[in-house]
Design a protein around this nucleic acid. Structure first.
Length: 401
RNA sequence: GCAGCUGUAGCUCAUUUGGUUAGAGCGUCGGAUUGUGGCUCCGAAGGUCAGUGGUUCGAGUCCACUCAGCUGUA
């Protein structure tokens, strides 16, 4: 564990992170098959890729101190247009000095455009060429989000990597629905690019859509690349389709994306999803899995998943992972975590979120090193073997008790 | 002591004038969760309807007694 984070049991003030003026750049230092490792540089810092970005929707990575998130090795967090525009409001965040100062995270921030949340959260929503009309899930108030307004909001927040507004379709869906959403997203990408203009040191990413239809994905990627953006996201995956469909879609899209630009697979995923996607050349990920699962009592570890709600942990004195450098993983007994989760105690959420993010960052660091060393496939085999052995052990303990 | 009320799943309660296999919420035991609602969803286990006896073709339901709890009263 980074001593900075736990010195004297207190969260310490982070060292100032002076903003270094400069361009937004991506350099690949090593490849292994289709996988690559490298760095995205921008004034607020460096993102080591492949990267996992903890999700900090409402200007907080839930149940974590920002200082902890950084100490775990996260170089960038995700913030959210939809949530922040509703509460506390983009203009207010701007008046308060921007999102970085507001949430005490001086490092890079990527913001989602709000398209996905409108699909997954908002009530009554209407999508047309101009944008999205929706009702807030908080108070029912009515709002309009256009591509231009989404970029404006992300600018007010001070986001370093801004996402185009897109329409994300839940799968399975009819092909014509997916196609319509893909073309609308393309037109919105162009409007977002114009609205974003030229902003040194910052980037706007486009989002490839098209469901699991190869023809649509290829068309989407081709058109987007024509806009020569600074990075390309693959959206609309892990939204209900089997993993095999997702991986096949990555295989399809990969060749159409420029190798010198970062690739971001949005909303993914489980450790296995991430490992498989890194092999296919993805550089960036974000997912609520480690944080949400943590709040619900599920731990991700080197030895697979552990559901701490389960009665079998009630008197288990061993920690989640005695070898881990993370305090939450190596010091607290499963019995204690079980109790905290059952009692719905805040500390339970904090410790499990901490453990999960630690594991995710450890997973990414391992993948980066393996790519550097040119032994990614061997490394992945080891990682998966460890999950399998852990879960077999858990099953054995269960049948024994 | 007397009178009244109450007794159904671990808990809080349903169960139309007696009528198929007594239900719900919470809890318990599992599972799901992928560009975050600490939200939510799915499945399972769990009952001698306080007990005994009676009336009836048929009783959680009606009657008697016993037990337990609550309230009032001398």
């Amino acid at each position: 564990m980074d001593s900075e984070t736990v010195a004297n049991g207190a969260i310490t003030k982070p060292k100032d992170s002076p903003v270094v003026p400069g361009e937004f750049t991506f350099t690949v230092s090593k490849t292994d098959g289709r996988a690559r490792t490298g760095e995205i540089r921008m004034p607020r810092g460096v993102i080591r890729t492949p990267a996992f970005m903890p999700v900090g929707t409402a200007a907080t990575v839930k149940a974590m101190y920002p200082e902890q998130v950084k100490a775990l090795g996260a170089d960038v967090v995700l913030g959210n247009t939809y949530h922040l525009m509703l509460r506390p409001g983009a203009e207010r965040v701007a008046r308060l000095g921007g999102l970085h100062a507001f949430m005490n995270w001086p490092y890079p921030i990527l913001t989602d455009s709000g398209g996905f949340q409108v699909m997954s959260l908002a009530g009554l929503r209407k999508i047309d060429e101009t944008g999205v009309r929706f009702q807030s899930h908080i108070d029912g108030s009515r709002h309009v989000l256009t591509p231009e307004r989404s970029i404006e909001i992300q600018g007010l927040l001070g986001s370093d990597i801004q996402m185009q507004l897109d329409e994300c379709v839940k799968l399975p869906a009819e092909e014509r629905v997916v196609e319509k959403a893909m073309y609308l997203s393309l037109r919105w990408a162009e409007r977002c690019r114009v609205a974003f203009g030229e902003q040194p040191g910052k980037a706007m990413f486009g989002i490839v859509q098209g469901g699991t239809v190869d023809r649509l994905r290829i068309e989407s990627a081709r058109e987007l690349v024509g806009l020569s953006l600074k990075g390309y996201a693959i959206g609309g995956l892990a939204v209900g389709e089997p993993q095999s469909d997702m991986l096949r879609t990555l295989d399809t899209v990969g060749p159409y994306l420029p190798t010198e630009k970062p690739r971001y697979l949005m909303g993914v995923g489980t450790p296995d999803d991430i490992v498989q996607s890194v092999r296919r050349g993805v550089d960036m990920f974000d997912c609520v899995m480690p944080t949400r699962a943590g709040r619900h009592g599920l731990a991700y570890t080197r030895f697979g998943r552990v559901n701490l709600r389960n009665a079998r942990h009630a008197e288990a004195l061993e920690p989640l992972d005695p070898q881990s450098s993370c305090v939450a993983s190596s010091t607290y007994s499963r019995a204690y975590l079980h109790h905290l989760v059952r009692a719905n105690e805040i500390l339970g959420m904090m410790l499990l979120t901490w453990n999960n993010l630690a594991y995710y960052q450890e997973l990414m660091a391992g993948l980066r090193k393996a790519i550097s060393d040119g032994r990614l496939d061997d490394h992945i085999a080891e990682v998966k073997d460890c999950w399998a052995r852990g879960e077999a052990q858990l099953a054995k303990n269960q049948s024994a008790s």
